[in-house]
Design a protein around this nucleic acid. Structure first.
Lengths: 223, 223
DNA sequence: CTGCTCCTCAAAGAATCGCTTGAATAGATA
DNA sequence: TATCTATTCAAGCGATTCTTTGAGGAGCAG
């Protein structure tokens, strides 16, 4: 008991989990999977990698116990192993943001200037969800909406938004949400809506954080 | 905004933090530093590595923003950058334990059989701290006791315990604590005390968790 | 069965990481 | 100023890791 070799092996075990998150593409996979289960081809598309490489990254995540699989026909669906994995991703994000000097810069490069984007807090949205005074738009890909969304939200993937803007009542406030604090879909939606003279705000963070806060959700039932 | 290259760079930034924890020796360093600040030579000794190699690992941790330094005379003291880093380590530990199949095995190899070690919860210890019905022993190295310990605890580094057992009142319960759930010092202490017919228990987890739970602590004031 | 789709596996080159060694640096001391 | 100590830097190797390519299963449809 307590010898150096066994101690090394134990802490190498912890390090193996961290290593699984030690690649940007895998972190992206975790961020996407925090929205709900997806199959390999979709995931490959999301992270801009080949299917083979994406599969390989998913094997690494599975090897560290971060994701689990389910087969449906000849599709294999991946999802996060548990809420604890989501917490780990949240903790990682928080540390990176607080302590990694370059991160603000990288985030600004990717997200652009957010200073003119208004945000609505989870609590305020939760209070006004049934008011009828606002419309909630889920601007993530349809598969993520299907896997789970804010109660009463309407699915409008970001690339379809401009087609339906004219159909939105002009006098109602619009709230857009997406994957989380480092997702651009809701930003793009608010910018587009603002250009069209709509009163639009972005929900604080994204869907996973809303779910974690125990606010009401619903999902499209599997057939 | 939102292009693939910037997105890669951003998520690579998150991955950099995870990479810093992607080595068992660095995880050990974080575990030790969660107890309080230490200098390089002590740390090298703790993780069983050369001073140069330890320094290198500390640079990696510092580069990811996980640790910060302070100079005092010609010593440089390292400490965790914040409580958020501790939370990240806790989240990592939790995921590894829940989802990595081999981890239980590795932990058993290092910790030995804990089934006969009795534990006392933080809450119970907190309630009885001023009772006078128990003695609390901090069996970590003296430097960690100095950096902070449970209020009223007595410092007895594990390798000095056998020398002082006979001085402990025979009719009082003893509680030993150390660094956390994967630390053997308190286990060894309880085993040794039990062999000497003392009524001894191990505190649930360790000092960092006690501190996080906002229970009373104190530290040896620096001169 | 055969063909098809989706996904995984295996191999290989390029890049990165980890540990060791020996030299260099910064600050303290005198 | 020179000297001492604690720490970091730099170079080099062996071992991993990442990505691409092409081949190899598993399940479904006909």
């Amino acid at each position: 008991m307590g010898d150096r070799q066994a101690k090394n092996a134990l802490f190498d075990g912890f390090a193996d989990v961290a290593k699984a998150l030690g690649n940007g593409r895998r972190v992206e996979l975790v961020d996407v999977l925090a929205q709900g289960e997806r199959h390999v081809e979709e995931l490959a598309d999301e992270i801009g990698q080949s299917v083979a490489n994406t599969s390989h990254h998913l094997q690494v995540l599975a090897g560290a116990g971060l994701v689990v699989t389910r087969r449906d026909g000849n599709r294999i669906y991946y999802q996060l192993a548990s809420g604890e994995v989501e917490q780990l991703w949240t903790a990682l994000r928080l540390v990176a943001r607080t302590h990694l000097d370059e991160l603000d810069e990288l985030a600004a490069d990717y997200l652009g200037n957010r200073s003119r984007l208004e945000e609505i807090s989870r609590d305020e949205l939760a209070r006004r969800l049934d008011d009828g005074t606002l419309i909630v738009l889920d601007v993530r890909p349809a598969a993520e909406y299907a896997a789970g969304h804010i109660r009463g939200a309407r699915s409008v993937p970001i690339d379809q938004l401009s087609d339906i803007v004219h159909g939105l009542p002009a006098d109602v406030e619009v709230v857009a949400y997406c994957r989380g604090p480092y997702c651009v879909f809701a930003d793009d939606a608010v910018r587009l809506l603002s250009r069209r003279r709509r009163n639009a705000r972005r929900l604080q963070d994204g869907f996973p954080e809303w779910r974690t806060a125990q606010h009401p959700i619903e999902s499209v039932l599997a057939s």
